[in-house]
Design a protein around this nucleic acid. Sequence first.
DNA 1: TGAGAACATGATAATCAATTTCAATTACCG
DNA 2: CGGTAATTGAAATTGATTATCATGTTCTCA
Lengths: 144, 144
Amino acid sequence: MNKRIADLNRYLADKGLKITRQREAVAQVFFDTDGHISAEELYVKVSRSYPGVGLTTVYRTLKLLKEAGLAKERRFAEDSQGVFEKEDTARHHDHLICIRCGKIVEFKEPLIEKLQDEVAQRHGFSVEDHKMELYGLCSSCRTA
Amino acid sequence: MNKRIADLNRYLADKGLKITRQREAVAQVFFDTDGHISAEELYVKVSRSYPGVGLTTVYRTLKLLKEAGLAKERRFAEDSQGVFEKEDTARHHDHLICIRCGKIVEFKEPLIEKLQDEVAQRHGFSVEDHKMELYGLCSSCRTA
DNA sequence: TGAGAACATGATAATCAATTTCAATTACCG
DNA sequence: CGGTAATTGAAATTGATTATCATGTTCTCA
């Protein structure tokens, strides 16, 4: 059915972990979600289709998905809870966030990544990952 | 004595807030600290020179310092603890973080900021602030 | 200068997301 | 199938941060 579910199952098998109803339910709903979702929100969504899955299990499954490289955790505002999004390594992106309405736009800028590598090299670092968030006003909020 | 303490006192006066022993103690120790420090760490440090200042007050003072534009709060990786650093608006910088030893190097790259503005403009955004963190291995950890 | 009003303090309690615990349940290897 | 190790979910716990509140301090203005 789903390539990503298969990826997860392969990861579980490799680690000697088990494929359970709950894990498949959480993963399925997560993979069907676009954009960002918190553990709490995902829990509510999963409960609708597959009642009886606990919040604890949602947290645990998200952790597994991260370990398997299938999900990525983000933390936008400095006070909020973590949110998760599908990891698509082929399409790494950064975020543009409106400080008034909260709108989030994803973008990718290879030139910036190239410069990041250069800067890191200058300091003797190799870059494994990065996080870049631009905070500002979107067009609607600017004219309003 | 200290220009920054004066800045803080001016801010407090403007807001109708009061200059207290505790606020000066926390601010003084904070301004004497280079790099990043958590509220808890600052509390310990303050307690050595000025015993009897509560953790609650350290949190409250750091919040004031942020509001006054004299401190900046950061949250690296997915660590749940926020850290603070002196804000020197004339020298905004980003961070290079070693994922093995935790070493943090600050850097500034005007070219990247120029590109950020361009990307934002393309999406109708104005940029007010940004956060960029590069995660990788420092030279010592790479060769170890 | 001194009294009063407003603000600040600090111990403790409360919050909130996230993790741990643990007894009961389930997957899966042979 | 049977046994064992992994998994589950409810509840308890953690860890960082914030709110509460009675008491103490600062600062204004007469």
